[in-house]
Structures are given as C-alpha cells and as structure tokens.
Computed example of a mutant assay.
Amino acid sequence: MNVLTACTFDLKFTYVLLGWEGSASDSRILDNVLSREDNLNAPQGKFYLVDAGYMLRSTFLTPYRGTRYHLKEYSRHPPENPKELFNLRHSSLRNAIERTFGVLKNRFPILAEMSRYDVETVNEIVLACCILHNFLVDFDPDEEIIAQVDRDLMNNESDHELANGAIARGEDGRRGEILRDSIAAQMWNDYITRH
C-alpha cells in the first residue's frame, strides 16, 4: 500500500493519505491529492521538498536528476556546483520524512505486520499510529528511538527513487524549474562567499 504524507522538521505528520495500491506512481497519487477537497496545497510562497518520484512543480521541489544526491556522496567531496549544493541540502532536509517514518515504525511494531489485516483495517491502524505519533512527539519523544533511527539512516541511506523520477511538464513544471534554479543559484552564491 502507498502512503502519501507530509511532515514537519520536528517529525510530525501534517498530512496523511492512505489506501492507494502499492503499484500506483507517486505522481499519480499527488495529482489525485491536489484535486481532492482535503488536498495538500502549500501555503502561498512556500513549497514541499519531495523525492524524485514526484513531478517537479512550483510547490513541490524535487532534486536535480543525474546529480549527486545522498549525504554519503558528499562526505569526501564537497559540492562542485549549484545543482549539487541544492541536492545536498535537499537530501539533508528531506531526511526529516525518513526520520519521521523511522520513529513511527519503531514506536509501533504492528506496522511491520499488516499483511494479515484487510485494507480498511490497515488504513485505520496506520492513521491511528500517525495521530498517536504526533501526540507522543510532544509529550513522550523517546530520544532513544530517535537516536536509533538516526544511526540506522546514516548506515542505510535509501535511493529516494532517483532513478524513476518524473520529469517536469507544463507551465507549473517550468515555474518549478525556475524556482529551483533560483534557489540553487542563491545557495551557491552564499556558499562560494563563505568558502
């Protein structure tokens, strides 16, 4: 089953959409989310960082394709151009979703054994776990779980679907490219000035 979520940098879920089959593409699910009454729209002047499985849009910024992305790839060789710096920082910030899911799965082991339940029950369990997770982040953050997730992520960095990423299309895709290029150029100028 596919689960589309948005989260904050303090590891809370702000949007959860359940029920799509596992074979559905990320971009197809996002297109559906944007047409729903309870859609996931970025506030004016803001955007979401998404992996390359999604379509580049003005409010959903993907990393640059064909450019180094993972944090480990930069451990010995610093970024050499604006695209690499953007991808490095994108990966670093996007790591919040990986951490959020890691904490969720560690906190609620039932999520690893969902195959015995029907789809409706799975949806209810996952949603309940996300709601409880948000509550516990404030009132019982369990620093040991968070530390373990951070160690696991450092050892097992995922691919973030870079090989299968969607290509920008249409006017909104062009606006996304312009915004991403502008952010990358500004980051690069600041980076060069400091180094």
Rank of each mutant, 00 (worst) to 15 (best):
L85R: 03
R76W: 06
W20E: 06
N189G: 11
L136D: 00
E124T: 10
I110F: 05
V103I: 15
A24K: 04
R175L: 15
K12V: 03
R36D: 09
I110E: 11
L56F: 13
I97Q: 06
N189C: 13
L162Y: 07
I131M: 10
E177H: 12
H160V: 05
S91Q: 03
G53T: 04
M114L: 15
L111V: 07
Y117H: 12
L111P: 06
E98W: 01
S75F: 05
F135C: 03
E73A: 09
R76L: 11
N155F: 06
L136E: 00
K105Q: 14
E177Q: 15
F139L: 06
E73F: 02
R151K: 13
I167N: 14
S115G: 07
Y54T: 10
L88F: 14
F86Y: 14
L153G: 10
A52N: 14
F9I: 08
V122F: 00
I131D: 04
T59V: 04
S58C: 10
T121P: 00
N39F: 06
V149E: 07
E177C: 15
I29M: 04
R175V: 13
K12N: 05
H195S: 11
M114R: 05
L4E: 15
S27H: 06
E113N: 13
L162C: 12
R94C: 09
Y54I: 08
I131K: 12
N41A: 12
N164Y: 13
H90N: 05
K46S: 14
P63C: 07
K105F: 02
N32M: 04
A166L: 04
L162E: 12
V119K: 11
Y15V: 02
P109C: 01
P82V: 04
K12F: 05
D140F: 04
I192P: 06
D118T: 07
D138P: 02
R68V: 01
F13A: 01
F9Q: 12
N81C: 13
